[in-house]
Amino acid sequence: MAGVLKAVPETARRGRDVPWRSICKVAVLEHRAGLASVALLSAACLAALLIKGLGSTMSLAQFLRDGAENTSALSVLDFVALAFPAVIGIFMGAPLVSRELETGTFRFTWTQAVGRTRFARISALFLGVVSAVLACAVGVLLTWYAGKFEVLGIESRWQAGFFLASPIVLPALTLASLAFGVLAGTVVKRTVAAMAVTTVVTAGLLTALMTYLVRTLLSVSPLVTNRISPVGNIVGSLNSPVPSGRWPGGAWLVRSWLTGPDGRQLTSTDAVRVMHQITSQAKGAPSQVGLAHPQAFTFWVSYQPADRFWVFQLLLAAALLGLAIAALAATMRRIRTIG
């Protein structure tokens, strides 16, 4: 019997590939509820950003008049923008494969001429492109709206929330979340459980980015100088306010510290004490510290110049895209071996 089993070269028999447009059409038919929900959410988000942005002819005077209202609206919109990747991962990524496995329809779709991996790969990529475009649109409008605050020195694009909601990082974050969702669905094989896993993973990623990863990334290879006066907050603050000629505009302060007459860095306690002492002597003018004690203390800052912003954006986006590709590759491998 063994002699009967002569393998026919697969390439010789391989039929026409199913066009990717056809697979995308199936993805639309099968996931139109999720797509419609996400489109509605995006539209609402974009409309809110547009209305707020167009209605706001931001000036310092206006900000001083109703600044709290404006900044809270911005915070809400930033939160919604950052929730966008999670929504995509939970409601579009997680069900993509898990629903097929849970309902048994994979026995239909995976036995059609298209083949299981091509079907899953094109479907995921299609949903990924749609999600990324929507995320980019949200990112563009949010960055535009936040820019009105940035020019006043009230907010900064370097802050974790706005850094993540940019038109470059937000699509990458969305793709990563989508890919995690698809992978979770493939592993867990239950839609609700996959959605729960995706929620935890995406929330964990966002929290890590907001609290640690972005800050850590932005502290890589900063420029260090002692030619800048201590303005604004001393440690880890944004570029505000920006006195002309004193501070490189649009830069991100990574760290600041004081060194004593012996050149050693002061501890934070000593730094606060010295600053308080100098401030008292200078009668509330901390910017005079360098002039008041030019020989005794030196004020240092490390910072990222403005022109590095897009470099860091691309670095983070590339890292997130790498995660997305890794998750998608793991998904395809898993799909190939299911059974």
Binding site: E10, D17, G104, F106, F108, T111, Q112
Partner: peptide, 22 residues
């Protein structure tokens, strides 16, 4: 001689699973 589940096989084999999962 086509490997089961290969693209060439899937194009020429149709399957109606138990309970017709559509």
């Amino acid at each position: 001689g086509l490997p089961a589940g290969s693209p060439g096989a899937l194009e020429r084999v149709a399957y109606v699973a138990q309970d017709a999962p559509l």
